[in-house]
Amino acid sequence: SSRTRFTDYQLRVLQDFFDANAYPKDDEFEQLSNLLNLPTRVIVVWFQNARQKARK
């Protein structure tokens, strides 16, 4: 499967949200999905990866 290429804007929004809340609710994932024009699944995985990185 091909990797999603995030724009700088998408990454900034995701990172800002993550800094405020590492565990979004379903409706928040949906809002981010609509805002960033990305599939919810891609955003869910991004947050999983970000939490892994933050733990190191």
Rank of each mutant, 00 (worst) to 15 (best):
residue 21 N to G: 05
residue 7 T to A: 06
residue 14 L to H: 00
residue 18 F to S: 05
residue 12 R to T: 09
residue 9 Y to G: 10
residue 1 S to E: 15
residue 24 P to G: 00
residue 25 K to E: 05
residue 29 F to E: 03
residue 54 A to R: 03
residue 7 T to G: 04
residue 1 S to C: 14
residue 23 Y to W: 13
residue 14 L to A: 02
residue 23 Y to R: 12
residue 53 K to G: 12
residue 54 A to K: 04
residue 38 L to Y: 03
residue 17 F to Q: 04
residue 35 L to N: 12
residue 13 V to Y: 12
residue 54 A to Y: 04
residue 33 S to M: 02
residue 23 Y to S: 11
residue 16 D to E: 09
residue 36 L to A: 06
residue 38 L to T: 08
residue 26 D to I: 13
residue 29 F to Y: 11
residue 29 F to G: 01
residue 52 Q to S: 12
residue 14 L to K: 00
residue 4 T to N: 15
residue 28 E to V: 08
residue 24 P to R: 02
residue 29 F to L: 11
residue 54 A to M: 02
residue 48 Q to K: 11
residue 2 S to N: 12
residue 50 A to T: 10
residue 9 Y to T: 09
residue 26 D to T: 13
residue 3 R to P: 14
residue 4 T to D: 14
residue 14 L to V: 04
residue 16 D to R: 11
residue 22 A to P: 14
residue 50 A to H: 06
residue 5 R to H: 15
residue 6 F to G: 02
residue 10 Q to E: 03
residue 48 Q to R: 10
residue 23 Y to A: 07
residue 20 A to Y: 06
residue 39 P to C: 02
residue 4 T to P: 08
residue 32 L to V: 08
residue 9 Y to L: 07
residue 33 S to Q: 03
residue 25 K to F: 05
residue 4 T to C: 02
residue 19 D to V: 09
residue 51 R to H: 04
residue 49 N to H: 06
residue 41 R to Y: 09
residue 40 T to W: 09
residue 47 F to T: 03
residue 45 V to D: 14
residue 15 Q to D: 08
residue 26 D to A: 06
residue 16 D to T: 09
residue 6 F to W: 02
residue 6 F to S: 02
residue 50 A to E: 10
residue 17 F to A: 14
residue 40 T to H: 09
residue 2 S to H: 11
residue 8 D to V: 04
residue 35 L to T: 14
residue 53 K to W: 10
residue 21 N to L: 00
residue 48 Q to F: 06
residue 27 D to I: 08
residue 38 L to D: 00
residue 26 D to P: 08
residue 35 L to I: 14
residue 29 F to V: 10
residue 6 F to Q: 02
residue 19 D to E: 14
residue 56 K to Q: 08
residue 22 A to G: 13
residue 17 F to R: 14
residue 21 N to I: 04
residue 10 Q to F: 03
residue 34 N to Y: 08
residue 15 Q to M: 08
residue 20 A to I: 04
residue 38 L to S: 03
residue 48 Q to G: 11
residue 55 R to A: 08
residue 18 F to D: 01
residue 12 R to A: 04
residue 46 W to N: 00
residue 47 F to Y: 09
residue 5 R to N: 15
residue 17 F to N: 09
residue 46 W to A: 01
residue 41 R to W: 08
residue 6 F to D: 04
residue 19 D to Q: 06
residue 35 L to F: 04
residue 19 D to A: 12
residue 55 R to G: 09
residue 47 F to D: 02
residue 10 Q to L: 00
residue 14 L to G: 00
residue 47 F to Q: 00
residue 42 V to Y: 09
residue 28 E to C: 03
residue 30 E to L: 04
residue 5 R to A: 15
residue 56 K to V: 08
residue 8 D to K: 11
residue 7 T to N: 03
residue 30 E to S: 09
residue 39 P to F: 02
residue 52 Q to N: 08
residue 37 N to F: 06
residue 16 D to L: 04
residue 16 D to C: 04
residue 5 R to Y: 15
residue 33 S to K: 09
residue 33 S to Y: 01
residue 48 Q to M: 07
residue 5 R to S: 15
residue 22 A to V: 09
residue 11 L to D: 09
residue 40 T to M: 14
residue 51 R to N: 15
residue 55 R to W: 05
residue 13 V to K: 12
residue 27 D to Y: 08
residue 36 L to V: 13
residue 49 N to I: 06
residue 21 N to K: 14
residue 47 F to V: 03
residue 20 A to E: 09
residue 50 A to P: 00
residue 41 R to C: 12
residue 22 A to Y: 07
residue 31 Q to F: 14
residue 39 P to G: 05
residue 15 Q to G: 12
residue 35 L to A: 10
residue 2 S to Y: 14
residue 12 R to F: 02
residue 15 Q to P: 01
residue 7 T to Q: 04
residue 19 D to W: 05
residue 49 N to R: 07
residue 18 F to L: 07
residue 29 F to W: 06
residue 53 K to F: 12
residue 42 V to R: 10
residue 5 R to F: 15
residue 46 W to G: 01
residue 32 L to P: 00
residue 56 K to Y: 08
residue 31 Q to I: 14
residue 40 T to N: 11
residue 56 K to R: 11
residue 37 N to K: 12
residue 33 S to P: 03
residue 7 T to S: 07
residue 4 T to I: 13
residue 37 N to L: 09
residue 16 D to S: 12
residue 25 K to D: 04
residue 55 R to E: 15
residue 49 N to G: 13
residue 56 K to P: 12
residue 41 R to L: 10
residue 24 P to F: 03
residue 9 Y to V: 08
residue 18 F to T: 01
residue 52 Q to R: 09
residue 9 Y to C: 07
residue 55 R to I: 10
residue 36 L to Q: 00
residue 17 F to G: 04
residue 23 Y to G: 05
residue 31 Q to A: 07
residue 15 Q to F: 05
residue 38 L to M: 11
residue 11 L to F: 05
residue 19 D to S: 05
residue 14 L to P: 01
residue 23 Y to C: 06
residue 53 K to R: 09
residue 34 N to I: 10
residue 10 Q to M: 07
residue 36 L to D: 00
residue 53 K to I: 12
residue 49 N to V: 05
residue 33 S to I: 00
residue 23 Y to I: 14
residue 11 L to V: 13
residue 32 L to Q: 01
residue 24 P to M: 01
residue 11 L to P: 00
residue 52 Q to P: 06
residue 12 R to M: 05
residue 41 R to V: 14
residue 17 F to V: 09
residue 51 R to G: 03
residue 13 V to C: 06
residue 54 A to L: 02
residue 20 A to V: 06
residue 2 S to V: 13
residue 8 D to Q: 11
residue 4 T to W: 02
residue 20 A to S: 10
residue 36 L to I: 04
residue 14 L to N: 00
residue 6 F to T: 04
residue 3 R to A: 15
residue 18 F to H: 06
residue 43 I to A: 03
residue 29 F to H: 04
residue 47 F to K: 00
residue 34 N to D: 07
residue 8 D to G: 08
residue 4 T to A: 01
residue 42 V to N: 12
residue 16 D to V: 05
residue 26 D to G: 06
residue 45 V to Q: 13
residue 30 E to M: 15
residue 27 D to E: 10
residue 44 V to W: 10
residue 2 S to E: 15
residue 20 A to D: 10
residue 23 Y to M: 13
residue 1 S to P: 02
residue 2 S to A: 05
residue 39 P to S: 13
residue 23 Y to K: 09
residue 26 D to H: 02
residue 17 F to K: 13
residue 32 L to C: 02
residue 31 Q to S: 10
residue 44 V to H: 03
residue 3 R to V: 15
residue 10 Q to T: 02
residue 52 Q to L: 10
residue 1 S to K: 06
